[in-house]
Design a binder for these strands. Structure first.
Lengths: 310, 310
DNA sequence: CTGCTGCCATGCGATTCTCGCATGGTCGGC
DNA sequence: GCCGACCATGCGAGAATCGCATGGCAGCAG
């Protein structure tokens, strides 16, 4: 007879409550799907685990809680309620309600992809505290490493990504050529870059290595960068004025002014820029992050090789 | 692989907390006195009981809680705190702090026995809410039966007590003869009732059957009740005036006026009146009741066959 | 690049727990 | 005085849990 408190089981408490409520071992057993002997022993075990003194008086007709039993009653309910709370919390987590999510994204993603995804996310999971920070891919990964972010939206332009991160492709971003409304190709829907090889270009940098044009350079396409403008709003100005054409990633193609036409560039001319959602490899990402990534892909699908404004 | 939630053990949670705090199965095992394998399996069991999703990420150097783990953390602490609360409550109960105690007592006990016991009890257990009700033995037992009282202080005068009650003798109450200060026996400390057989008596009733004198009646003691007075204060008046003598139970002998003398009556002349503490048979009495009974006996010892004022 | 080390997972046998079944004891009622 | 309701308990089967030993994996030093 080990009078020592091995460790009290929550099953004990559930049985205890049933017995207290029903006033009978037999009835509690029937309700709980046990035999009467099992209930008897469970109560015995609980009584011995709790130390001296019975929890129920065994009367000729059923049982009645002793003072100890009456004291235990609200506590047992509280414990079980907490246990129920555990399940609720975890369910809420699975259903992505509550908690926080810290997202980082590269600048272009801030044009449409991330804002739209955020909007959809907020609608579905209004309880999640969501923050978004902008930064370049390298910086974002560093913040991920230091635990400052839960999720980073990065592009493949930054070169090789260390193995420490788990990447999930969100979208293969299509590229568009932007031409003025009166351009000779303005009525086309698709072009080859070779057709624009002789046009003056506006780009983010004179050095093509640092611009979107870089992966497109080939034998038959060596663009002449006549104007330099980093911001898309400025590029639009040059293009709309008929001074130049520009290469625009689909993610930035939203809200283009009406006097500009976007032409889908043939896939072979420029590889799609991949956008990834990065988390720390080996660490289970927050459930909210999973949900955010799903929405990212959903939103991102609209930017993959399709003209936003036909 | 039973993915079903058998019932989560509190041991799970304790192990979980240790692992979360120490960041390592091995270290937690060492701290808790388990082997590493046991900890590993406990966490596995907890994870499977809680359903999909791990609680810890297994890293090359130790483990780190996942989001699920971080959510579980405060809940687990709460559950264990409640469990600790159970033990504290029960310990407090054993040490008689808190809770309530409802006592009933027959009128004479209210003269000194109960008030003194109450005072001692309040001093020792100030947290217990104590109430005292007065009533005759029969009524008190009825209220005990109906759960209106936890404890009844009753005397043996009421005849047989049903078996439904557990009686614990508190004191065998001595009887005194009260005589005026100038009485011929006033200097004695003990008397035989036969010596007072010819005196006029004052009693609570003309019918000796209903008075304290009843059990004392014998061949050589047939008292003549000259005066009837129910209250002890009135009896004192007759005695002090030298009109009569009276029989006084020790419990009522406190605070006797100075012109009256109390003489111990020989034990053979009148059987001591027993005072009992009654609880419901078969029901575990409240811990406070046990403590109260102990103090009753302590206090009552002063009224057994001893003159309170020598 | 190879062996070492630290850490978690897992197969195995022994122990303990817990269950259901059947039985015994006690009390109240017809 | 027998019967029925109810709780306690001996017994054997099955499940859970433990420790021990081993395996797998990642990082690190030589």
């Amino acid at each position: 007879m080990s009078t020592e408190a091995h460790e009290l089981s929550t099953a004990w408490l559930r049985v205890f409550l049933a017995v207290a409520r029903l006033g009978s071992f037999t009835e509690a057993a029937r309700t709980l799907g046990y035999t009467q002997s099992a209930v008897s022993r469970q109560i015995q075990a609980l009584e011995s685990a709790l130390g001296e003194g019975a929890l129920f008086d065994r009367l000729p007709r059923g049982v009645a809680p002793t003072e100890r039993g009456r004291v235990l009653l609200p506590r047992a309910e509280a414990v079980l309620a907490q246990l129920e709370g555990v399940r609720e919390d975890l369910t809420a987590l699975r259903e992505v309600s509550g908690g926080r999510l810290r997202v980082g994204a590269f600048p272009t993603a801030g044009a449409a992809l991330v804002p739209r995804t955020v909007a959809a996310f907020q609608e579905r999971h209004p309880d999640v505290e969501l923050t978004v920070a902008e930064g370049l891919t390298g910086a974002l990964l560093g913040r991920l490493d230091r635990g400052e972010l839960d999720l980073a939206v990065v592009s493949s332009t930054g070169g090789a990504v260390p193995e420490a991160y788990a990447l999930e492709k969100v979208v293969d971003e299509a590229m568009y050529a932007a031409v003025p409304a009166g351009h000779r190709l303005a009525r086309r829907r698709r072009v080859r870059l070779a057709e624009l090889a002789d046009e003056p270009w506006v780009s983010g940098s004179t050095a093509t290595e640092r611009s979107l044009l870089h992966p497109a350079v080939r034998e038959d396409f060596r663009p002449r960068v006549a104007y330099v403008a980093a911001e898309w709003i400025a590029k639009q100005g040059y293009v709309a004025a008929g001074l130049a054409v520009a290469l625009i990633p689909a993610l930035a193609a939203d809200g283009v002014r009406p006097d500009i036409r976007l032409l889908a560039v043939h896939e072979e001319d420029i590889p799609p820029r991949a956008v990834y959602a990065a988390t720390l490899r080996g660490r289970t990402p927050p459930a909210a992050a999973e949900a955010f990534i799903r929405l990212l892909r959903e939103t991102g699908a609209r930017f993959g090789r399709r003209l936003p404004r036909p």
